[in-house]
Simulated assay, not measured.
Amino acid sequence: MPDDRIGPPLLGGERETLRAFLDYHRATLEMKCRGLTDEQLRQRSMPPSTLSLLGLVRHMAEVERTWFRRVIDAQDVPLRWSAEGDFQAAYDASASSRAEAFGAWQEEVEHARRIERAAESLDVTGYQARWDEKVSLRLVMLHMIHEYARHNGHADFLREGIDGEVGA
């Protein structure tokens, strides 16, 4: 599997480094899905789990949307895949396609990048309703890195189970 990810700067400032690590993890998820059919991307890990690579992409679209658009930018937008606010609904990719999931994810990543770049500093805050607390953009960036890192570990196992591909 070709690795065209750009690594974070070794001597960058805080914001540049956070941005680069987040983009590195975004690229890792995309790389883990490269070259697979829709059917392979929908392949579930093992019963009773509904976890699949496509489900992870949909979930990360929802996470990007929530933390950047809803929390930091205070946009009143619903979740993409659940009118009831159920984050687990994104994992059900049984009727999804690469085009649908990746289209949504790429759209949310672009919104997130725009919001982050427009923020005056990492100290900008937003309201996280689930916690009933204000949170900084810094926390959001770190949380997103954590989310991707954890789910990219899942993606490693899922991809290996599909076609034996390992690494990155």
Rank of each mutant, 00 (worst) to 15 (best):
T66D: 05
A74I: 01
S97Q: 06
L53V: 08
L22R: 12
V63Q: 04
I6M: 09
R34C: 00
G35K: 04
R5D: 07
L41Q: 03
S96M: 12
L11M: 15
V77E: 01
M46N: 01
F68C: 07
A74N: 13
E39A: 10
S49N: 13
S96D: 14
L56M: 06
M46G: 00
D4K: 11
R80P: 01
P8Q: 10
V63S: 11
Q75A: 07
L54S: 08
M31I: 00
L56H: 06
G7I: 15
P48M: 06
R5I: 14
D3F: 07
V57T: 07
E62K: 06
E108V: 00
M46D: 00
A95R: 15
Q75Y: 01
F68D: 00
A99W: 07
V71L: 03
E30A: 13
W105T: 03
F21I: 12
G12A: 09
P9W: 11
A89L: 07
P2S: 14
L11Q: 15
A99D: 15
L51N: 13
P48T: 02
L79T: 13
P47Y: 08
W105V: 01
G55W: 06
E108K: 11
A104F: 04
F87M: 07
R42H: 03
P9S: 10
C33S: 10
Q40D: 12
Q40E: 15
E30L: 11
F21C: 09
G85Y: 03
T37F: 03
H59G: 09
S97F: 08
G13S: 14
F21S: 05
M31K: 10
L79R: 15
S49L: 07
S96I: 01
F68Y: 12
H59F: 08
L51P: 00
T28F: 04
H25S: 02
L41S: 02
T50S: 10
A104P: 08
A83W: 04
R42M: 06
E62Q: 10
G12I: 08
T17A: 09
D3I: 00
R65S: 14
D3Y: 14
A90K: 05
M46P: 00
W81H: 14
E108N: 09
I72T: 02
F68L: 14
L10G: 14
G7R: 02
M31V: 00
S52T: 13
Q40F: 05
S82Q: 05
I6K: 13
C33M: 05
A20K: 05
A27E: 01
E62V: 02
L41F: 09
P47A: 14
C33A: 12
S94K: 11
E100P: 02
K32V: 02
K32F: 08
R26M: 04
L11N: 15
E108Y: 08
D73N: 13
R44T: 12
P47K: 14
E108S: 11
A74W: 06
L29D: 03
S52K: 09
R80L: 11
W67Q: 01
A93G: 05
R15Y: 13
P2H: 15
R58Y: 09
M1F: 11
G35C: 01
S96N: 03
L79K: 09
E110I: 03
L51C: 08
D86K: 08
E30H: 05
L51T: 15
E30F: 04
